[in-house]
Design a protein around this nucleic acid. Sequence first.
DNA 1: TGTACATCAGTGAACGCGCGTTCACTGATGTAC
DNA 2: TGTACATCAGTGAACGCGCGTTCACTGATGTAC
Lengths: 214, 214
Amino acid sequence: MSWSSQGGFERRGYHHGNLREALVEAALALIADKGPAGFTIAEAARLAGVSPAAPYRHFRDAEALIAEVALRGFERFTAALAAAWNDGKPQRVRAFESVGRAYLAFARDEPAYYAAMFEARIDFTAHPGLSAAADHAFGVLREAAERLAAALPPGRRPPSLMMALHIWALSHGIASLFVRADPSRRKLPMAPEELLEAGVLLYLQSLGLAGGPM
Amino acid sequence: MSWSSQGGFERRGYHHGNLREALVEAALALIADKGPAGFTIAEAARLAGVSPAAPYRHFRDAEALIAEVALRGFERFTAALAAAWNDGKPQRVRAFESVGRAYLAFARDEPAYYAAMFEARIDFTAHPGLSAAADHAFGVLREAAERLAAALPPGRRPPSLMMALHIWALSHGIASLFVRADPSRRKLPMAPEELLEAGVLLYLQSLGLAGGPM
DNA sequence: TGTACATCAGTGAACGCGCGTTCACTGATGTAC
DNA sequence: TGTACATCAGTGAACGCGCGTTCACTGATGTAC
């Protein structure tokens, strides 16, 4: 597999032309392979086909590069959750469940982004925009919870922030424990998606937001 | 802070006398400080006051030492959860909530163990006993869920395995996202314990296992 | 259109560092008799 | 009780390695005029 022939990162002479992008790609490949801890600037440079000093023109250090990966991850994550929510259409409870599935799908399909976002121990405060990007992703869930709660009469509406936090935590727990492909992960008697969907439904039922056996 | 004067690890001459224990202690200190990734055999040896070659008499490599820490962590974790459950006394729903609080307390009070257990990307299958130790911890939750479910008439009993998985995931999600002391963690408008307790109560209500506004 | 110049991205060699790992060794401990 | 011996835990020196980081440099690009 040659990076120079992938994604349009043609190396054309002395100047790379797109080194920043190539380094992000390399970081993703390395994180996917060995986790955020196994990642080094030197190896990313090697993958991108440049000298070990070149990356420093674009990133202060390894954490800055991982933070860039995490930032882009949160942007994609936000887009994926928003697409799943689809403005609550065609039916709000269904759309809400769909957001949960999108959460797990992201953890499964983009393990490198997911690891950079949640497992790399980045100092969010040290990288401008990172907290905001994470907030945007959470905002999708928050908005969805708000819209769901609005279906109830004012006196019986649960606090949407709490709802969003519960669903976020449940999704994140299932993703961390059961979706990530580590050999250390426990086997489940059901798909993580089913587990999450059942949990969300039960939760919504208790708030009077979904019909059910109860 | 001197390790030789702590925990009875007096170095008395050529032989350390308790190097295995001292290395585990050193690993805990290092993991607490820099995370599982920042941990090296060489530094653990330095902390324990022995030559860099000495640890190899006790552990094959760094992962083996971290696995030992994780193993002990799961044993402590099991004990903490079991103590909180206290055989369902004095009242099962209360005892169940107490297990949740114990989960969060462990993540907060034993960050090094928690990191070794859940964030170190250890290959569980490569270290005998580790999976079993993790299963024991989960078993406490499983047993508690079973006992809770047994309060309902047979036809209305939820599957206790599913209950246990839901509560485990919710607890783990809240612990990972909101309890760990990383600077990257989001600020909450309430204590993680309150968030978890509210979530567990709502969940149990939907199963008909706890009274409530519904 | 051409030329001079400024800017900048990437070079490559070099450095010090800490780590993992090995090895023959040695000091301490325990045990057989 | 003493002595010889086996066992074993820890030594310390050594090695190769890859990383982070620096530096003066150089080749390419763009722009002013």
